[in-house]
Design a protein around this nucleic acid. Sequence first.
RNA 1: GCCGCUGUAGCUCAGUGGUAGAGCGCACCCUUGGUAAGGGUGAGGCCGAGAGUUCAAUUCUCUCCAGCGGCACCA
Length: 659
Amino acid sequence: MPVLTLPDGAKREFEGPVTGADLASDISKSLAKRALAVKVDGHVRDLHREIEKDAAVAVVTAQDEDGLELIRHDAAHLLAQAVKKLYPETQVTIGPVIEDGFYYDFFRETPFTPSDFERIEEEMHRLVDADLKTRREVVDRDEVAKRFEAQGEHYKAEIIRDLPKDEDVTVYHHGEWYDLCRGPHLPSTKDIGHAFKLMKLAGSYWRGDHRNAVLQRVYGTAWASEKDLKGYLHRLEEAEKRDHRKLGREMDLFHLQEEAQGSVFWHPKGYEMWLSLEAYVRRRLGEDGYREVKTPQLLDQKLWQASGHWGKYAQNMFVVPDAVPDTESGGPLFPEGAFGEDAKLLAIKPMNCPAHVQIFRQGTKSYRDLPLRLAEFGCCHRNEPTGALHGIMRVRQFTQDDAHIFCRWDQIEAETIRFCALASSVYKDLGFEDVRIALATRPEQRIGTDEEWDRMEAALARALDAAGLDYDELPGEGAFYAPKLEYHLRDAIGRSWQCGTLQLDPLLPERLDAAYVDEDGARKRPVMLHRAILGSMERFLGILIEDSAGRLPLWLSPVQVVVATITTDANPYAEKVAAELRAAGLRVETDLRNEKVGYKVREHSAAKVPVIAVVGGREAEEGTLALRRLGSKESETLSIEDAGKRLSGEATPPDLRGD
RNA sequence: GCCGCUGUAGCUCAGUGGUAGAGCGCACCCUUGGUAAGGGUGAGGCCGAGAGUUCAAUUCUCUCCAGCGGCACCA
């Protein structure tokens, strides 16, 4: 006699075993119609499986998170079913639900093309209309493995062999087709509905390992209703509009070109933005006890060998021989052996830490010098795989807002608290309110004793607690020598970006022989804290552009005001206005072209100029200007002086505001 | 690096086995117009690079390069 407790606390008793479907129709007719599955003690189960025992239950519909997940999971199956029907030689593998949709990985000699989508989608719609009922079957693992093997489904057979031995192996039938699956599933293909769409095609690796076979991945999206699907497609369009590569071109901020793959050409406007951000961070660091340094780009291979980077990361470093290239003989550019064992090789720095240790090592350091905070807007090069490059977000040359804090073990906690406070304040100033912190702890492959790891992890965790910060733990994600903190920022359209980091490092001081003299006169090793707040200037500027959709806060806008004239008669007055606004500290351009003001407004609005000051005969006579804010149709007439005061107030960087 | 797609004017994109087109932008002229496109004229292209097939290749084939989307990577 199971007693089932509904979400509202109501209890229902049944004579004997009951299914989710029975439960739904017992509650209401309309619910029975909409029921997709049933949640039993927190686990989603097939609607037609029996509930034997007392449990907390809830009927799942398309309106629930769980229901949507089921729709997407079934849509993945539907995709596989359609593909198998149209292309029987294809082997199926896995098809999980992902954010906003699903994918399915297939193995196939001839790749799919986007033009296949139409056919596949058509077949999927047909299968939905066919209303194929789902049937769950618990099967014998060896028998079913053989069955898949016999059908040439070698990947499925491999999956079965690797399933945990204590788990039931289940197969789901949708009409004639069936697939190995843990479930649960919708009662029928009809319940998937028609709000799905195949989106894109990509290569992937079997089991995510690049040494394995290449699979064809088909991405799709699926929603509870046509309206939701449309909304999603609309959101994608909106995200495309804020693509920093597109806005960077439209706003004339930067460009990229073949001859400097993965490195950014910053245009005057883009660099204006960079300089504003850099100046802000420089002030914040200066106030917080950091000293800024500048270190060499090219450093001898020997230093990278000593630091340990050569062994582990050489394949991502740019290396040049310290030899004169021979461009005249037509033979090899460098003499034989220029890259050999005894050659002098220089590497362009991929990071700043070894160089900062060199500064620390100059002269004898006392415990009184600690903590020593060395900051650098360090320009680094990393030879990223070509496939990883992406606009200015993932580049080969980038500038980190890097710093290294050299301190004693007992200072780690205080330094971490201090860093967390600074990072939070910077993110807030830059408009990021949703910031998540993660503590990445000891990985499987690591050096050092468990006691040392306990000590390091505890220090970070204590610091976070002391700072009153919530954090998630990321077990196993730490560096091989120490744990680290990661800051993840959520942007205006909900994407998450890892920016800040704080990484403990007892190893590098050891390797590069950094030491200080302690109170008792003994020579001791400092600990290094590698830390960054923005991460990379390039990437962070990209994030700011996308987060704001190009509508940057006034203090970061490269052009803050455009003074646009209505007729050329007002040009001299416009020059006067521009000069006075510049004198008030604003970045101002004039638009004196012989064009209609509507045309000018349109153009500067498209270029995301935050303020347009329109001046004509009336303004010239009165000594005023008409301010039009980006995104507003209203304009406001002010005297030049008032406008200058007000705008320069608004354009003050957040850390310099009096309020 | 791997898989797929793409590469035509500054930008967005049509198009063709017989060496090219639009819109926007740009230049010049007319227009002096009050808040998201006034009109006219004109310049601008080794159709990503190399090889092959062909009487003939921007178009078909191959190789390379780059971009895009994923995968893998991200100290």
